[in-house]
Nucleic acid binder design. Structure first.
Lengths: 131, 131
DNA sequence: CCTTGACCTTACCACAATGGGAAGGTTTAT
DNA sequence: ATAAACCTTCCCATTGTGGTAAGGTCAAGG
């Protein structure tokens, strides 16, 4: 099948398939005489794996590691679990960071009367004018 | 004061100060005869404003808007509050997304025995092999 | 058979925000 | 006078994705 069909079936855009090939995440597929890339079910399966990992927030690099582990039939599941756990930790750190921002902003927005008067606690905070 | 001092006092790196100038977020400062940028208290105050806004997760573009509103003495606080509120909403969307990922990953990690056996539910999920 | 449209190819450019470094000029202190 | 610590501009890299342009290919229908 051509790259367009592979994109449709995997949910990875043709653009990204070529990119993943370029950075070595996937191996170069066979080509037709007219230089078209040709994909089979196995390749689509790999692409779906990649897409799922990306959806779960793994970086392309982490995805590469998971892919290698997936294709290594003798791997230990502990390795995979470690990657997942450290990723969970990173996500939770990010969440905490965003929640801190939300908390501060909500407080400021709550204090701001939000009408046509120029007085605004949000800007005062940004300007460092604690009061 | 030179850019290095301005960077120290504002918490914005010299590199970023030049960048903010280049994209028009701040106006070009005076220069000495030897072409050095010269900053005063006002400029540092602006830089601190920018840094605080960035820390709260506002994009540079949003920061530019907030900065303009800050410098407009007749602005309505409602405008600022609207920006803050829509930013809060965007942050909360992002948080929910990350939490979805964490939830899925925690479930998968919980199911994974994480020892030396090759059997691994995390990889099975990524591969799309629901069971 | 030839045209048209839908595909494919490579090769660029762009984004957002930041850091790094090189090559060269200036200032300050020893 | 020289060395250290600044400053200047210019270019490159990052992450992952999208866009676009110039050109080749293939299939369907007149």
């Amino acid at each position: 099948m051509n790259i367009g069909q592979a994109a449709d079936q995997s949910g990875v855009s043709a653009k990204m398939i070529r990119y993943y090939e370029q950075i070595g995440l996937i191996s170069p597929p066979h080509r037709t005489d007219s230089n078209y890339r040709v994909y089979g079910e196995d390749e689509v399966h790999v692409l779906r794996f990649i897409r799922r990992a990306r959806t779960l927030g793994f970086s392309v690099e982490e995805t590469a590691t998971l892919l290698a582990l997936w294709q290594d039939k003798t791997r230990a599941s502990g390795e995979v679990k470690d990657i997942a756990n450290s990723h969970i930790k990173a996500l939770e750190t990010k969440i905490a960071e965003l929640e801190g921002m939300v908390k501060t902003l909500k407080h400021l927005a709550h204090c701001c009367h939000g009408d046509t008067r120029p007085d605004c606690p949000i800007l005062d905070d940004l300007a460092g004018e604690r009061h």
